[in-house]
Nucleic acid binder design. Sequence first.
DNA 1: ACCTGAACACCGTTCAAGT
DNA 2: ACCTGAACACCGTTCAAGT
Lengths: 222, 222
Amino acid sequence: MGDTQPRRKRGSLSTSEIVGAAMSILDTEGPSALTFTRLGRELRSSPTAVYRHYASRQDLIVAVAEHLDFLSLENYSATDDWRHDLTQLAWRAWDVASEHPAAASIAMGLITNGVHELSAVEAVLRAITQAGLRGRQAVIHYQAYANLVLGAAMAQGARLAEGLYTSKDVFTQVYTLSNPTQWPNAEALKEDLRVVDYSEVFRRQIKMFVDALELAVARQDA
Amino acid sequence: MGDTQPRRKRGSLSTSEIVGAAMSILDTEGPSALTFTRLGRELRSSPTAVYRHYASRQDLIVAVAEHLDFLSLENYSATDDWRHDLTQLAWRAWDVASEHPAAASIAMGLITNGVHELSAVEAVLRAITQAGLRGRQAVIHYQAYANLVLGAAMAQGARLAEGLYTSKDVFTQVYTLSNPTQWPNAEALKEDLRVVDYSEVFRRQIKMFVDALELAVARQDA
DNA sequence: ACCTGAACACCGTTCAAGT
DNA sequence: ACCTGAACACCGTTCAAGT
């Protein structure tokens, strides 16, 4: 109110400060709160100052994606058990999405071409190579893994963000089966369909991926 | 220019006409072109007329999602081969996303609670039941399948839309490995990482899911 | 009951002017 | 070189007024 805004010293704004402010806004107020106006307020700068560091809103979101990659890999170290490593890396991505749902919902799954993304690629390729795949097949399985993990983590972020910043229950599904005979299987499983335990689904997805990878190597049909 | 707009007769606007107009705009001009102003022009109506049929832009997008569900299931019929059916259903979703990339990029994966979504749920549950799963386990595997297929189809839509309406090559990945020894696996697979054949990745993902499902049933560890 | 047109409270982005 | 403030061309949504 009474405090007048001092002009920011030139060079005092950094990309890491901007990304930090963006993460903080996303965490506390959700995806739609990430505007240049809101960022300016958080940074105690002009809203347009951010343009000196990122060419567009989308560019900033890519930087947020890189930060999520960084968080996912923080203190990670590979073991000699590729099944364990792939499982571990998947849950790390899931946990980051659960801690920063709004950021994950808009940024996870974006290709950043950045150094932390590359570290994630390296970690996954290492495990897949250890599993026994080489060359093109290793890359295709890496991509299948990335699709699976990033897709699930992004969706989890979106669900949590929706639940937090609006007040909609996104974990309960409702099908009113007006004509049960038309959908006999859905009718029979109605109760199980109602509430979804997404982390159990994710656990199952990882297990299926790892099992299928092992099978492909054993069968040599990768 | 010279043509004056006659007022639309009341009741002449329908939800199906609006969804059709939305699909047409998305197909020809991309996701960002779907505005109320543009819809009004397409429908030869006031931009705000749509609000008499959908409560918000998001509501309209959910209706687009239902339409995509409808297209995915059109003329589908189940066989007695659950592996074939799951594969078939997956490629149907993929093909719809490829034909309507902009619509898929914003709508696929949204929960509609609608009748066509329910038909898709029924078709997948039928196949999974036929594979040998029951109750809670059938539902969890249905969800794993839906995550996989819808996630991949939505991502495919986003890539195609990005490529069509901007002119960015989203199929070529570039990692400049300034320090190759830090990422030995990525370095070794650099050439294979450069160009991605996403439909081959999708084919592999489906195969891995089906294989893992079969294995889970055989092992009784579902 | 449904469609229109004006108004409201925002957006992201550009750019000349400051320091 | 970097930050500011005004301006531009939009948005989605609301609502009183038409028919």
